[in-house]
Design a protein around this nucleic acid. Structure first.
Lengths: 293, 293
DNA sequence: CGTAACATTGATCCCAATCAAGTCCTGTGG
DNA sequence: CCACAGGACTTGATTGGGATCAATGTTACG
């Protein structure tokens, strides 16, 4: 479907902005073994730490293969992880063995933070692709923070960012419809790919429908159906794991169905939306998804 | 306003373990104005910081009256807040003015952390009762962290705790039934009251049904109905804002309805539960809410 | 090539949202 | 002190979105 060489390793080939993803390139040389502080800050998108003494501070890398677990629930905590390349999921597992996906860490993301409080990881991290991770021992982090105030600030900032992200998730789960959740999920993914230098318009999902559903508080059937529906309306194209974003703006502005207040009219808007997608022209008047109030 | 009690200010009187809550006592003397580092650590439940120099490090208090806003979304961030006494809510407000309750901070809780990342508060904090808050300027926090390693560690720990809490919320919203959410909410509240030295068996809700619903991703009607149902089954007593916990264990073990896997049988268990509550004797065999698998 | 995991699609059911009264509390002003 | 207004809560009737159950199609992989 994507030109001639489509047969193998379709996972990477779709991100056409890079003929060979850094992940695979990295793996061909079996990944870096060490990063210095400057590289660490780059990856995390935090302002350069003025390393007065270009000290011998190095951070070890570790590689994980698809399916491998980075850490498990209850395992003693001592280090944080930063994704250098690859894709992972973090999950909570309840008393019956049901998985609840919490996040999909990718390049530049920090995870393992939930272990600080109880000295044991509260979640489990699993590689969804081959991964190259940077180890950040917590001891080293705190020591570093004492030497470089900007670094300390940056770490607080990154943790704060995580918290804000979780708040967004709570808000989404609490108030948005299935359609809106999936739409947001796609937009977020798209933006993250863009940040990483990949195409934001065409990419491959690294996770299953089941995992997406768990992440969004939906069943895999609903996820599948919703993707199909978006496809029919022309918002996206779907072919298994391959997603093409056709109308990012529509996805972005797709909103909740009345969460409690903000009375009806939404239904009308939804029907109008579908209708408008078929008849390819904007209705005369304010039918937009934004609430009338 | 405390006075001959009973007739007025029913809010406090139910917590009978303390004839006069620290909140009101505090208010009679108009609240403390300053706390030292030791008191701060006490409140936060973190190990005593060995203050080598019993320095003149003091932390200012601020008082807020019911309904007042502590900070708003978008407001420039520079300080964190620790609840010394009183009850609050933190909310996200979407583009249509709909509130999403994120948390109900009370004694010992830290909030405002979401402001670190973007330098602006990402949420809004509102006092649900008269409150006495300790100000913790972020600058002072980082400075302190550099002097007292244990304090730095403690701050990371507290932030990690917040993150774990949010994860729990996500998990709950993603996988639990309305009944289970309300049950957990009550159990959590009960435990928090216990931590604060109040009765865990009889307490007053400081928030409306609407706020609880928003927090749990439910409507106020569902919250109300569920409380009524628990009341009928004998798990709790309800009288407006006053809640009595009758069967904490049942509330604690009340579980999800099949989130995706863990096949049926749950229905049977639920009916058995209701039946058992009426006929006050344990069924012969393993009908418990724990999954069969 | 055959099996298993993943995905799509349809049919049906049920939990919780919505809509709608009506009651109870609280505070306010005459 | 009482009347009254408005917010909070309860309860009932109805609806609908998404879960569940089920069958089939597709892709990956040993």
């Amino acid at each position: 479907m994507l030109s001639t060489q489509a047969s193998d390793s379709r996972g990477e080939v779709v991100n056409s902005t890079l003929h060979s993803s850094s992940l695979e390139a990295g793996w061909q040389r079996q990944g870096k073994l060490w990063s210095n502080l400057k590289e660490l800050c780059d990856i995390l998108h935090i302002p350069q730490v003025t390393a007065h003494t270009e000290e011998e501070l190095l951070f070890q890398h570790v590689q994980f293969k698809t399916g491998q677990r980075v850490h498990t629930i209850g395992q003693p905590f001592d280090t944080l992880y930063i994704v250098h390349s690859g894709f992972l999921k973090t999950v909570l597992i309840d008393e019956f063995g049901n998985e609840q996906v919490l996040s999909f860490p990718m390049k530049g993301d920090l995870f393992g933070v939930d272990g600080i409080h109880t000295k044991r990881y509260a979640s489990e991290a699993v590689a969804l692709s081959n991964c190259d991770l940077i180890l950040l021992p917590f001891k080293k982090l705190t020591a570093l923070g004492r030497i470089h105030p900007e670094f300390e600030h940056a770490m607080y900032s990154v943790m704060s960012r995580e918290l804000v992200r979780e708040q967004g998730m709570v808000s989404m789960l609490g108030a948005l419809s299935a359609e809106a959740r999936v739409a947001r999920f796609l937009v977020n993914l798209s933006e993250r790919y863009a940040d990483m230098g990949y195409s934001s318009k065409l990419f491959n999902l690294r996770m299953t429908r089941h995992e997406i559903g768990s992440y969004l508080g939906l069943t895999l059937e609903t996820v599948s159906r919703t993707l199909s529906a978006f496809n029919e309306i022309g918002l996206i194209t779907v072919d298994q794991r391959s997603i093409g974003i056709k109308d990012a703006e529509a996805l972005r502005t797709l909103r909740r169905l009345p969460p409690s207040s903000s009375r009806a009219k939404q239904v009308a808007a939804k029907k109008a939306k579908a209708a408008a997608a078929q008849a390819q022209e904007a209705p005369a008047e304010g039918w937009d998804q934004r609430a009338s109030a």
